[in-house]
């Protein structure tokens, strides 16, 4: 499966809906994520900086209802982008929280506080979709 193709986008949608495997962290962490996700309605665009290609994930009431590849993320509530090196690192098992901390992944557009209200839900969704087996 190739990275940033419609086929991959559909697999990413299924992966974020399923969520990551819940081992290694306390139940209270996953409970927090469940609460953040309940009723969540917003659109995330996750882009590759070099190519300007975005995966747009549309959340409706806590479910990812749609996933698409586009070069125009202007309708998304939160637009984020990372360089190819950061995407590669994430696909090789790199820590998504670290990508945020080190600003490998940046919020290009959208309200920072609103984005962080669901930060662990976002980070774990990013983990789930970057763990998909892909090739370039």
């Amino acid at each position: 499966m190739r990275f940033f193709t419609p086929e991959w986008a559909e697999a990413a949608r299924a992966a974020v809906n399923a969520g990551p495997s819940q081992d290694g962290k306390l139940p209270s962490y996953w409970n927090w994520i469940d609460r953040a996700r309940t009723g969540y309605t917003a659109t995330w665009a996750l882009g590759v900086r070099e190519s300007g290609t975005y995966l747009v994930l549309t959340w409706k009431d806590g479910t990812c209802a749609d996933a698409a590849i586009t070069s125009d993320p202007s309708l998304a509530d939160f637009v984020l982008a990372a360089g190819e090196a950061t995407w590669r690192d994430l696909r090789e098992g790199g820590d998504p929280g670290r990508a945020v901390m080190y600003r490998g992944l940046r919020l290009e557009r959208g309200d920072v506080l609103a984005f962080f209200r669901v930060i662990y839900f976002f980070v774990e969704s990013l983990a789930a979709l970057t763990r998909l087996p892909t090739e370039d």
């Binding site: 962290k25 962490y29 820590d95 929280g97 670290r98 945020v100 901390m101 080190y102 600003r103 940046r106 919020l107 920072v112 506080l113 984005f115 962080f116 930060i119 662990y120 980070v123």
Partner: peptide
């Protein structure tokens, strides 16, 4: 030492990073 850092570190400190960007 990163493996000893809690997953929830990114909450306040990632927020600070993104607020600095803003």
């Amino acid at each position: 030492s990163f493996e000893h850092v809690s997953e929830t570190f990114v909450g306040p400190f990632g927020l600070l990073a993104y607020q600095a960007d803003e």
